[in-house]
Design a protein around this nucleic acid. Sequence first.
RNA 1: GCCCGGGUGGCGGAAUGGCAGACGCGGAGGUCUCAAAAACCUCUGUCCGAAAGGGCGUGUGGGUUCGACUCCCACCCCGGGCACCA
Length: 856
Amino acid sequence: MGRIIASGMWRQHVTRQYEPHEIEEKWQAVWDAEGLYSVTEDPDKPKKYVLEMFPYPSGDIHMGHVRNYSIGDVVARFSTMNGHSVLHPIGWDAFGLPAENAAIKNATHPAKWTYANIETQAASFRRMGFSYDPERMVRSCDVDYYRWGQWIFLKFWERGLVERKKSPVNWCPSCKTVLANEQVIGDGVCWRCKSVVEKRDLEQWYFKITEYAQELLDDLDTLPGWPERVKTMQANWIGRSEGAEVDFELCGAGGEACGQTITVFTTRPDTLFGCSFFLLAPEHPLVSELTAGTGYAADVQAVVAATARETAVERASGEAEKIGAFTGRHVVNPVNGEKVPVWVSNYVLMEYGTGAVMAVPSGDQRDFDFARKYGLPIPPVVVAEDDPLINELSGVHSRVANDVPWAEAYDGYGVMVQSGEFTGLQGGKASEGMKAVTGWLAERGQGRFSINFRLRDWLISRQRYWGNPIPAVHCPSCGLVPVPEEQLPVVLPMEVDITKGETLADHPEFYETTCPKCGGAAKRETDTMDTFTCSSWYYFRYCDARNSAEAFGRDKADYWMPVDQYIGGIEHAILHLLYSRFFTKVFADMGLTSAREPFTNLLTQGMVKKDGETMSKSKGNVVAPEDMVARYGADALRAFILFMAPPDKDLDWNQDGLEGMFRFLTRLWRYVEGAAGAGSAAAPAEDPAAKALLRERHRVVGKVTADIEAFGFNTALSAMMELLNAAGDYRKTVPADARDVALEREVAETLVLLIAPFAPHMAEELWREVLGGEGSVHRQSWPAHDPALAAADEVEIVVQVNGKVRAKLTMPATADDATVREAALALPKVIEHLEGLTVRKVVVVPGKLVSVVATA
RNA sequence: GCCCGGGUGGCGGAAUGGCAGACGCGGAGGUCUCAAAAACCUCUGUCCGAAAGGGCGUGUGGGUUCGACUCCCACCCCGGGCACCA
C-alpha cells in the first residue's frame, strides 16, 4: 500500500500520504461486505435507537443533509463504541408532489423519477460513510410499506378517528390540492410551494387528532429531552383555552323570546355583565336565516360578501378593517336579562369556538375597537385597583356607567363592578369571579365550564396521484365503506399519465369497483393520503422492516421504541413531530406498542446557509457536497461541518475552514504513522513532559466523551486538536532516544478511537492497517479515562489585587488554602501593589485564584 | 402586539460566577528551498509604550458580588415562531 511520494523520493523517505479517496471507497466496500452496520435485537446490551428525519428523495444531497446525517452518524457510532446495541436506519419519504412536477417536466413517470433519485441519494449517503443498517431500508412508495399505511387508516376508522366532512378548507392553487392547517405557514402560504392558499368548501377526509389534543399537550411535560422552543410551539399550536360556554336566548323579530339559544365560548365569563352586543361570524348559518327578507339583509349581506373577498392573508393577519352590520335581532344576556343587539362582523371566525361571540368592549380590544367605530356602549365591569374609575364604581352593583374614559380595553386583573351579586369579586383570566359566574350559570343550566382548543382535525386527503390511495369505497346504497383488510393493498396504478395531468379520478380502471358490503357497483375513493401520514410511523417500520404479515411486530417495537435520539430540522416543530406523536398515541391505545411518545430526545439542527441566505438553486448559491468530497474526502467534510458551529445553530457555509480540517486530519495521519511502532525504549518514569502528555490524553478523552454526549461536536474536535498539538510538542521537544514510545503509541490509538465517529474511513485505515488493530475500529470500546491521571499535580494560581490580575503562582495541587494565601501575599508583585493599602479580605478559590481586597 | 432564541477579535466560534477570546480560519514574520508549494516555528483583541509595563474591552445603561460574557432589572438591535383564537 505504501508508496514513495515524489518530493520525498530523493531523500529515500518512504511514507504514505493521506489519500482520502483511496481509503474511503475501500472501506465502504469492506463495511458492506462485512455487514458491519446490520443490527439485531440483542437482549444483553442496552439498546439505543438513533434516527435522523426521513429524507425526501429530491435528487442531490445538500449541505443540510450532510449536517443532519453527520450528527446522527457520530451519535450512532459513539453509542456503539460505548456498548449499546444501536439501531440506525435510513429510508425515503418517497411519495409527494415534487415527483409529479418533475415527471411532467421531464415527461417521465413519478415512480421512475423517485426510484432514480433514491438510488442517487443512497449512493451519496454511502459515499459520506454513514452507518445505516442496509437491511432496514424503507421506501414509502413501495407497496410493502404503503399497504400498512392503508391498514393503519382502516384501524383508525374502526376506532372512530376517521371522518369525512364538508367544511371550509385550505386549497393551494399551485399544488392543486387541499392542505392541513399545519401545512399553511407564515402569512397563509403553502408550506411546500409558498403560494397563498385559498379557502374552499369541500368534503374531505380527516384524522381526528383533536381527540388527543389534551394528551398531546399534557405529554409535552414528559419530554425533558426536547428543546423548550419546540414544546412551546406545539403548546401554542394546540392552543388550549379554559373558559365557559354561555347560552344566550335568541329573541324573535319582534323582540319576544323564541326559545332558540345560541352558545358562545368565552375565557372571561366574569365580564358577562359588560356584554353590550353579540356577534356572529359572516359564515354562521344563522346569519341569512335571521335577516332574510328583513330591512337588515342588504347591509348584512354586504359584510358577508366583503369578508368572502378578503384573502386568507388579510383575514388571518388581523390587518383587515373591522366591519359589521346589525341583524335587527337581539339575544338575552343570561346574567342580567338584558337584550343586546346581534351583529355580524368579519373579525369573528367560524372555525374557532362556536362562530358566535359575546362582545365585552371594556375588556377586549377587538370589541372595544368595534364598539367605538359603531357607537356601541362600553360599560366597565372589571377595573384595575389603581384606576381612578374605581372610586366612582367600587361596590356599585347595578349599571350606572355605559362608557369608559380609556383609550383601550383593560384585560388584566381587577375588581368586578356593575356586576350584580358578583360585584367586588376579583375578575380576570381564571379568576374567582370567572369561576363564580360559571358556577352560577351551570346551576341554572345556562352555561358550563368548557375547554376550547385551537387545534383542528388533520385534513389528510389530497387530490394528487403520487400518494397512498385511501382505502375506501363510495357505495350509492351503503354510503362510505372501508376496503376490507383482506383486500389490501389498494395498489396505486402505474398507468396514470401524469404528463397529461391525470389523477386517479381519471382512471375508471381504478375507481370502478364493487361495494365490499352489498356487492353492487360502487366508486373507489380517488384521493390519496397526505405524505405526512407516511412519515408518521416509519420509525416503527424500521424496527421490523421486512415483516410481511404486520406493520411491525410488537416484540421488535418494544425492544427498540421509543427513538432515543431523533435529529432533524426545526421546520418540523409542529408538522411531522405533532402528527408522529398523535400516531404513536393511537398505536399505544391499539396495543401495538408500549410507547406513548415516539421520540425521547430531540435535537433540532440549524440550517446551513450561504452568505446569510438559504441555499437554493434559484439563488444559485448551492454548494454541492460532492464537490467538497471530491477535493477533501468525506471525512474532512463530515468533521468540518460539525466543527463549524454547535449543531442547533444556523451556520453560514464557508469553505475556508475545510482546508484546515483536512490539514488536521493529515497531521493526525502523520502522527499515527510515526507513533505506530510498538517500540521498547524505556522512558524515564518521572519525565515531566511524558507525564504532561499522559495527563493531556486523559483530560481530552474525558472532554471529548462529555462533549459528544452534550452534542458539543465542535469542542470535541477542538479537544482532539489540542491532544494532537500536545503530542506534536512532546515529539518536538523531547529527543528521540528519551521518548516514551509506549505512551506515544497509546496517544495515537486514543486519537484514532476518538476521531472514529467523525472520520470513520481514516480511523479505520489507521486502526487496521497502521496500528494493526483487530477487527473494525467501529467495533472497539470507547477509550477510558482516569480523572486522577487527568489531574495536574501542580496548579497555577492567579493572584488578583482589587480585582486585577497582578501575579501568578505555581503551587502543588494539594496545598491548603492557608498556604496558598500566604504564598500569594508574599509575592513581590503583590506586595508592590499593596503598598500603602490595608488588606481587608482575602478570597482563596482552591486550585484557581487568590483575590486580595485592600483599601487605603 | 405576544412567546422563544441570539448579540464576544478581521471571520467561525470557546469559556461549572474565577486569567475573556480555547480550537480553527485568515493575516504578519521566519525556517527549509535555486525558487515555489507543502510542512514546521513565532506573533496576531485594542490603545499608550522602544521595552518593562499599564489602560480599555463580551450590544447599551444600571444593580448584586472580593470578582460578571455568565446572575438580576431596564432598554437597543438581529433571527425565528405565533397572532382578529373570543
